[in-house]
Computed example of a mutant assay.
Amino acid sequence: MKISFTPRDGITHDFTTFEEMATCVSEKLPVRIVIEDDGRTLSDVSLTHCPEAEDFLEAVLWTTPEGSAPDDKYTQGDCDVFAITLQRLLPDGRLIAVYDPVDPFTGRKMRGAPYLIHAGLLLDDMVLDIRGAREKFDWITAHRENGDASDLWGWREVSITDLEKMQKSKITEAEITEAMPYARLVHITCSVTDKELELPVPTF
């Protein structure tokens, strides 16, 4: 992964750590930041101020060249893919899901696996997803409310098979490959902003 920026002096800088980038960006505003991975541009955005570490994902990652934010993709349909991709990077994490046995579209109780509201990766008492890290019960409560869950809602640790049953589809390697650059960015950012997780600090 490559993160670079071009300030108004026209000289492009490349970085290997978030701290290195933040220091340099703050001295040379305004800047254009480009995030690339394996020849693919993930983000291309101009900033007039340097984002704090905890705001980095919101300020940079969600502005994509195609105009469609990965935040939408991995909160509205493919959260299971993203959680599993994060687990590839952080194998000590456990998959967690908020679910509802009542179908939100019909209002009827479902047969078999419940409806998946949201999935993430649990590390200690924090849950990681496309928006970063959040305390477990705050994360659970937020997604129960956002998902307009019925009184029968629940949450639990799950397996990949559980998620596939909830989503009624197999998760493919192609989907994981597509999600991996964004999962790496979440990993990088959370390793800086959430010290209590004690994540290994990766380089870009």
Rank of each mutant, 00 (worst) to 15 (best):
T141N: 10
R32M: 11
R40K: 10
K170E: 14
T177E: 11
A97N: 06
E36N: 02
D55M: 12
R111H: 15
I3S: 02
I35W: 04
S169D: 07
E198K: 15
C24A: 13
K109D: 07
R156A: 05
D38V: 04
L185N: 07
D148G: 00
T75P: 09
S150M: 01
A179Y: 08
E66H: 01
V25F: 11
F137G: 00
L163G: 12
I140L: 11
H118S: 04
R32H: 14
P65F: 09
D125P: 06
N146L: 13
E157S: 02
F105I: 04
Q167F: 01
R134V: 10
P70H: 02
I35K: 00
D125M: 15
F5S: 08
T203W: 13
R108H: 11
T189H: 15
S43A: 14
Y182K: 04
G147T: 06
A183H: 04
E145N: 06
L47A: 05
T16W: 15
A133K: 12
D103N: 15
G67C: 09
V192A: 11
E19N: 10
S4G: 08
A142H: 01
E135W: 15
P101N: 09
T48Q: 05
R131T: 07
E58C: 03
A69V: 06
R144K: 04
A59Y: 11
E173Y: 15
Q76I: 12
T177F: 11
